[in-house]
Design a protein around this nucleic acid. Structure first.
Lengths: 359, 359
DNA sequence: CGGTTTTATTTGATCGATCAAACTTTTTCT
DNA sequence: AGAAAAAGTTTGATCGATCAAATAAAACCG
């Protein structure tokens, strides 16, 4: 009575066999209409729910994807991954997939988690974040033939056109290109960039966006351009220090673009001249302070990741000959322009302080 | 060859029976030492991993807990739940548990997700966040006898001493009491409070902490105390508006305490007098701006939640007579004191801007 | 040493669903 | 109408592990 009904119970009530009940749930098309109606009535009458583990045991499918929850980087930029996780969970839900979390302390540890979750049939595939060049994790997953997608392109040039695994990424190049154009269109010519030391896949990509946009316009010479760039580690303090360095060495500056919101926040703090500052990631802090920022559309990324992952599932279960190369998807970010709303010298009407200009 | 080994394979290699292999994994104590060694050798030789779904089917245990990922509230305060999720996943991992995410658009939707995950044997129990008084979710879970813990106490007085379900919460009262004391010890007497409209379980709790600390010290009369309080919805803009209201109506103020970091950030923006502001939740934004804040120790909360949930598993599987009331745990928050580091009028050495004074 | 208890190991059944193949009924076509 | 094809339904086997009960081996004891 208190126990859960099974297919057999439903079959008995509906006056059919187990398999017909199974067919109603999985391949309704091959069941005669009135039989199906009878079975469906029995299902809802009994409140029947299929036992997920039993199904997984038989089908060797879990309808679950695994994702590592990173150990909280700095809390500011880290929120992008949190937003991505939110989006991924929602999109997964819409596709009937579930998201299983795990943690790991190192790439090796993560690989052993991959093995555990895969061998235990806990997950069908993985979503990887924060990939690096020659990532040991992607190598291992490829060897094992385990389905996965990365949020982050493979950072080796030869992988770009014919990647060895599916990936989704945000086009940081065009994000910064657009941000630069926006400032130029507003009349700025001397636009500085605060970025990360090379080699950094994402960092170099963003820097090139700024760099090319500057060269294309030709407002400043190539030598001047070098003076407008500061390289530093990520962080609020570093951003402030970089801004001070720019003030000393670069002379007049019309605008500053940063590789992250953390840097941008720092730059804004050390910014008595109120030069417009643009960050990257559109974190809550940027919205709160009124900082322009390049927004990564995590919903699109999540949707694309799941789509590619679903394609992987097909491929793995299908014929061994798989001539089509893994697909990839480049997502274009959006520039969120806000009024520069630093904390004012004097009290000012609040509505004017924090306002989003375009979206 | 390419297939996964099963217990039967291990048994064959080790020259024992299936069940002995199972015993080595689940109840190693009852297997003779040398037999166990032989089995363990075979396990690692074959790289055997138990099939999680098969085990779950038989044992009716999933070693997985479900938690709803809320649809991203405002991005500032929401990060507390993200931090909690991080902590929960790590602690769960240490206990051999996994965390399964799901989303829901309403309490009813969430209940149907509960049913789906529970009936499908996907999870053993749930962790609930953002509970309210007479929460329909807790009622339903209690009815069904499904194991769960809430992060958030039951907000009804009669539930407090003998709660109907286990819970963990952070003692917002003492958090604000301590924050008030800290300002008083620094010489402040007129300390304002910006909070949320009543009834709000967490909000009222925090407010009382400030209120009592003020009355205990007796620096201001009860009438004056009312003038020092502003009630508003959560948000940066609202915080700024509240601060301006205080400036108009409350006269001189020595310090401001807020029910959230979002309010505190707003208060700081509309704060030309540089009155010390204290927030709640110790979000990244507070750390970045240099805002004092009450920190919720999410690690402790997560550990306690899992401990109580484990106790629930015991209870459910054991005898039907369960006279002990569900346990609960109140966690004390920490006050993080920072130098007030608003964006300065003029450029100032950066290191002096963002510094954490105590921890 | 024989009998009893304790300890160690094995066998058969089972969890709940789906697959593969057999079987029955209906439809199609000459 | 009768044979062949298609559609609908049922039966037996299976996924991989654990439980319950049966058996075998070892330890205890007067």
């Amino acid at each position: 009575m208190g126990e859960f009904p099974t297919v057999t119970d439903v079959a008995r009530v509906a006056g059919v066999s187990r398999q017909t009940v199974s067919n109603v749930m999985n391949t309704p098309g091959i069941v005669k209409a009135d039989t199906r109606a009878r079975v469906e009535a029995a299902i809802s009458a009994l409140g029947y729910r299929p036992h997920a583990s039993a199904r997984r045991l038989r089908t060797r499918r879990s309808s679950t994807i695994g994702i590592r929850l990173d150990p909280m980087i700095d809390g500011i930029s880290g929120s992008v991954l949190d937003r991505f996780l939110h989006a991924l969970t929602e999109q997964a839900d819409a596709r009937g997939l579930r998201v299983l979390l795990f943690t790991a302390t190192s790439p090796e540890d993560e690989i052993s988690q991959f093995r555990r979750l895969n061998d235990g049939a806990d997950v069908d595939g993985f979503v990887l974040t924060s990939t690096t060049a020659d990532d040991p994790r992607t190598e291992w997953l490829l060897e094992q033939g385990i389905a996965f997608v990365t949020f982050g392109r493979p950072w080796r040039s030869d992988d770009f056109t014919a990647p060895r695994h599916p990936w989704v990424d945000v086009d940081g190049y065009s994000g910064l290109h657009a941000a630069t154009r926006a400032q130029q269109d507003a009349g700025a010519t001397r636009i500085a960039y605060i970025g990360w030391p090379s080699p950094s896949g994402t960092g170099d990509d963003r820097r090139r966006g700024w760099h090319d946009a500057m060269l294309e316009r030709g407002d400043v010479s190539a030598e001047d351009l070098a003076c407008l760039e500061v390289v530093t580690a990520d962080g609020v303090d570093q951003g402030a220090a970089a801004m001070q360095q720019l003030a000393r060495t670069a002379g007049g500056i019309d605008a500053v673009l940063c590789a992250s919101d953390a840097l941008a926040l720092g730059a804004m703090i050390a910014n008595p001249a109120r030069v417009p500052v643009t960050g990257y990631d559109n974190t809550p802090i940027a919205a709160a302070i009124g900082l322009s920022s390049v927004d990564q559309p995590v919903d699109e990324v999540a949707a694309a990741a799941l789509e590619l992952l679903a394609g992987e599932f097909e491929g793995k279960s299908g014929a061994p000959s798989d001539p089509a190369p893994p697909p990839f998807r480049m997502v274009t970010p959006r520039l969120i322009t806000r009024q520069f709303a630093a904390i004012p010298r004097d009290s000012v009407p609040v509505n004017a302080l924090v306002s989003e200009v375009s979206r």
